[in-house]
Computed example of a mutant assay.
Amino acid sequence: MSGGAPGAQAHVLPADEDPAIYREGFKVGIPTLFGIGAWGLVVGIAMVKTGLTVPQSLAMTLLVFAGSAQLASLPLIAAGAPIWVVFATSLVVNLRFVIFSALLAPHFSHLPWKQRLALGYVSGDMTVALFLQRFPTEAPALGKLSYLKGLLYPNWAAWQVGSIAGIFLGSAVPPEWGLGFAGTLAIICITVPMVINSAALCGVVVASATAVLAYGLPYKLGLLAAVLAGMVTAMFVEESLERRKGSHV
């Protein structure tokens, strides 16, 4: 052993921590950061243009950190919908994170619950997908936590920078510029790349039709009905296709 103070011990990183793998995760996630920042910018503008004050918008983006849920709740808040409708809509829109949590849980079940809760807060769609591409199995592997952090932290920062910039930009832009449609454009930009198979396409078509037919419902409940109808349809079509494939095997 080389010299040093008696009893001194070298600093040892936890088994899950590896700076090199953190940098690897960061590099993999870099291409997504510009899109995340732009999306945050649009959502920030949409929040203030919907009627939220700057402090309310800042609190929402920092506490909620869920662009699709934020955009879904904004028209409900503007319409004065009951709080349970706002929460129910946001819950339904974000149900996919239950799946994400189930996929990540086996990889990090050994961590303290507070750390898992913090990681869950900064998790996002793209970051979870990129992590699972790198670590598709639950087998122990060096640097899993570092890789996940390398994806999550920059993603969170890019969103917050874009969203906060949008909040102040939106508060400074005159109403006659007509930026109230920004939230709708953001949803369209998010939805199109996600329509990757027939099940997703069927879900989008049914959700769109339901939203139009249920437009007259009070408190914007047509939006909640459309989300539920689209999700159920996509799940049904996906299950039917899987069953059909199984029967041909």
Rank of each mutant, 00 (worst) to 15 (best):
A200I: 13
I196S: 06
A165M: 10
A172F: 10
I83P: 00
K149I: 07
W39E: 00
L221I: 04
C202M: 13
Y153C: 06
P75Q: 03
A38S: 12
S171W: 09
F34E: 00
G3R: 12
L132M: 12
T137N: 11
R134I: 10
L76Q: 11
S247K: 14
V122K: 01
G7P: 08
E138R: 09
L63N: 04
G51R: 09
G166H: 06
A165K: 00
L169M: 14
A79C: 02
A102Y: 11
V28S: 05
F168Y: 14
V12C: 08
A165V: 13
V212L: 12
A69I: 08
H107K: 07
L152P: 03
G124I: 05
A182Q: 01
S2D: 08
S146M: 05
A79W: 06
G162H: 08
L119E: 07
L223E: 03
V192H: 00
L103T: 10
T50G: 15
W177C: 03
L228M: 10
A225W: 06
D125F: 14
A10M: 08
V98I: 15
S101V: 11
L63C: 14
F168Q: 02
R96F: 11
P193E: 01
H11F: 13
R244E: 15
V93P: 02
M194W: 04
R243V: 12
G3F: 13
P175D: 13
S171T: 08
L62N: 02
A158D: 09
I99M: 14
L142I: 05
L91G: 03
A211G: 05
A105Y: 15
K114M: 12
S73Y: 08
L117S: 13
V43P: 00
A207I: 06
V237N: 05
D18K: 00
L148D: 03
H11G: 08
G35W: 09
N94P: 11
L221M: 13
A165Q: 01
A118Q: 07
P154S: 14
I30V: 15
L71F: 06
K49E: 08
F108Q: 04
G40Q: 05
L103R: 12
W84A: 12
S208R: 04
M194C: 05
T127D: 03
A209I: 15
G166W: 07
Y147F: 15
T210K: 01
T53H: 04
K27M: 03
Y147Q: 07
V173C: 00
E239K: 15
W84V: 14
G180K: 03
A211R: 06
S198T: 15
I30F: 12
S240V: 14
D16H: 07
I188V: 15
G37L: 12
G150Q: 05
P31I: 04
A200L: 12
G203I: 11
T233Q: 02
A226W: 01
V212T: 10
L71I: 10
I83S: 08
G7F: 10
E24S: 11
W177K: 04
W84E: 11
G183H: 09
A172M: 11
V86E: 02
W39H: 03
V192Q: 01
G29A: 08
A46S: 13
L58N: 04
V93L: 02
A172C: 04
S57A: 15
M1I: 10
A78H: 05
E24P: 01
